[in-house]
């Protein structure tokens, strides 16, 4: 049995997916579609706390409200389940604390607005995270990822991916860490648009980094000792970020 992704702290009443039900990921991802928005409503569910942030030198961060940490095995099915957990958490308002707090700034005295994330922003989050995580599965850990190892305290063990999310009013900050191989040349791929003008020789790959860069802001890749660290910001707007020059 493959281990399911570990949620740092699951809110009371949060459903668990059956560990070996691959369809659960799809169902969870599909749930909520068809609505204009997904509820990031300010529920009173306890905010998730990141118990330990290895990238912060072992210090427990001062403010963990509105953050979500998920650790998942570096496999394609692990990514599916991890994404399902992200969206289950989003629907339960796990990140709502930060969203509501930010949204209320400058509106002192006003009733806290109910933050709503457009469905297209949820779709964007799912696509970007899937691309980034599956790239790690494929390239950092190779075609045959090692069997998921147990997580040691404060360290991303080989075969595991740590995903940290924190929400602001208009943006989702994402940091992904893994102990796999570094990116070639120590840099994240440029993600240039593919040439699709030659219909006879259409590219079948190379779209992943284009989509990541197209849909994120402030992307940063750093190779830390024994660890890849990729961070970026996903706008929560209904419309995609402006098309950068040349893309």
């Amino acid at each position: 049995m493959k281990p399911e992704p570990v949620l740092a702290k699951r809110p009371a009443g949060a459903p668990r997916h059956p560990p070996d039900d691959p369809a659960a990921a799809g169902r969870a991802g599909a749930a909520g579609r068809g609505h204009g928005t997904t509820a990031l409503q300010a529920s009173r569910a306890p905010a998730l706390q990141a118990p330990h942030c290895p990238d912060a030198g072992g210090r427990v961060p001062q403010t963990c409200s509105g953050t979500l940490r998920i650790t998942l095995p570096a496999t394609e099915t692990g990514v599916r389940r991890g994404l399902a957990q992200v969206f289950a958490a989003l629907r339960q308002g796990v990140l709502a604390g930060a969203v509501a707090r930010d949204a209320a700034q400058g509106q002192a005295g006003a009733a806290e607005p109910v933050p709503q994330v457009p469905q297209s922003a949820c779709d964007r989050i799912e696509l970007v995270l899937a691309e980034a995580l599956n790239n790690i599965v494929e390239h950092a850990f190779g075609p045959e990822p090692p069997a998921p190892a147990t997580e040691s305290r404060g360290v991303t063990a080989p075969g595991l991916i740590a995903l940290d999310l924190s929400a602001g009013a208009a943006q989702l900050h994402c940091t992904i860490r893994d102990a796999g191989r570094p990116m070639p040349d120590g840099q994240a791929p440029a993600g240039r648009p593919q040439d699709i003008d030659a219909a006879a020789d259409l590219p079948e790959g190379g779209f992943g980094w284009f989509l990541i860069r197209r849909l994120t802001l402030d992307l940063c890749y750093v190779r830390e000792p024994g660890c890849n660290r990729l961070s970026f910001v996903i706008p929560l707007s209904a419309e995609d970020p402006p098309r950068p020059h040349g893309l």
Binding site: A30, L202, E204, G208
Partner: peptide, 17 residues
């Protein structure tokens, strides 16, 4: 199909070819 990523896109292109 509610979700298709770059791998899925590549697969559709491969079928076309």
């Amino acid at each position: 199909v509610g979700f298709l990523d770059s791998s899925g896109l590549g697969a559709v292109v491969a079928v076309r070819k």
